[in-house]
Amino acid sequence: MHAVVFAYHDVGVNCLKALLNAGIQVDLVVTHEDDPNENVWFASVAKLCTEKNIPYITPSASELNDLTPKLQALSPDYIFSFYYRHMIPAQILACAKIAALNMHGSLLPKYRGRAPVNWAILHGETETGATLHVMEVKPDAGDIVGQAKVSIGPDETATDVFGKVSEAAVAVINQVLPELLQGKVPRKPNELQKGSYFGGRKPADGQIHWNQSAQQVHNLVRAVAPPYPGAFTEHNGATMILARTSLKGPFPAKLDLRATGIQVVDNRVFGICGDHQAVEVLEWFPASK
């Protein structure tokens, strides 16, 4: 079996390794140039390609359509997309002789779209996972090929959960590879009406609104904790990034639970929330750092 792989991030590295270990011939990898303005904390697909002598390219989104003749010439059995960030045009998807398959970091049809792990934590979910699905022009909408669940602990950050999702993605690939190698693609409907779609998140979305509940604030901190841009608030004229919070208590009796915002009591930092509950700030630092 021959494949062309669009890949980035840890999921891209780990799933590409799984394909190679299964004996799939990867004729080309399409990945991204690392953005010098981004906090790159994950493994490099380009580095893996160099180590394995796999040809790779890093086209911009506007250059993807120009790849169609190249992919038609390669005529891959499969096209895979593993955390590749651009939408792949329909004429490229059509170059796959058997199927074009994408790995998504949620339990589809839930959390279609961008930043699925971050959104799941923000909404207080207790589980998420990885889903391999057939690629269509509409994002994350094609039939489900394989799925694996992971738990989300009450204090786990997006990075913690992303590590689990990366492992789940490899488990899904290994689960379906025996059939894919025979040219069979297991399918079940992706029932979009039972799911949800969310767009990308911007750093500005990390602003804490203290009129929300303590649970909502805690979930926001977890969802965007560094190396993501972080949840932030103003305190004494400085913008502070909250990296870790706790709901566990016990909390000092001196706290004024009627006054929302930051309070410092007994050298401990607390955020008082709109439901008259507190979160303890375990780690924070100036945004300027």
Rank of each mutant, 00 (worst) to 15 (best):
C49P: 05
P76I: 04
A46P: 06
K70M: 14
I92C: 06
P89C: 07
P59R: 14
D34R: 14
F80P: 01
L71G: 04
L93C: 07
E51D: 15
A61Y: 06
M103Q: 07
S81Q: 00
V40W: 11
T68L: 04
R85G: 10
N53W: 08
F82L: 02
P55T: 11
E51L: 14
A46K: 10
I57F: 11
L48C: 07
S81W: 04
A73T: 14
L93A: 08
N65Q: 13
D34F: 08
P76A: 02
T50W: 06
N37T: 15
G105V: 07
Q72C: 07
S75D: 15
Y56V: 08
E63N: 14
P55N: 12
L48T: 05
C49E: 07
L74I: 15
Y78S: 02
V45G: 06
A100E: 03
F80M: 02
I79P: 00
N65A: 15
P69I: 13
F82E: 00
S60V: 07
D35Y: 05
Y83C: 09
Y56F: 15
A73N: 10
M103R: 01
N37K: 13
N53P: 00
E63Q: 15
P69L: 11
D66F: 10
L101V: 14
C95M: 12
S44V: 05
H86N: 11
H104L: 09
F42R: 08
Q91P: 10
S60A: 14
I54C: 08
I92K: 01
V40D: 00
I88Q: 09
A90C: 01
F42P: 01
H86D: 11
L71C: 07
D66T: 14
A100L: 03
M87Q: 08
L93R: 05
S44E: 13
L64I: 06
F80H: 02
A94N: 13
L93Y: 03
P89H: 06
I54S: 03
S60K: 15
K70W: 06
N65S: 15
E38P: 00
Y78E: 01
S62L: 13
G105R: 04
T50N: 12
S60G: 15
Y78L: 02
Y78C: 04
T68Q: 15
P55A: 11
M87R: 12
A61V: 12
A90Y: 04
P69T: 13
I54T: 11
D34V: 13
A94E: 15
K52W: 09
M87Y: 08
P36W: 05
D35F: 03
Y56P: 02
S44P: 06
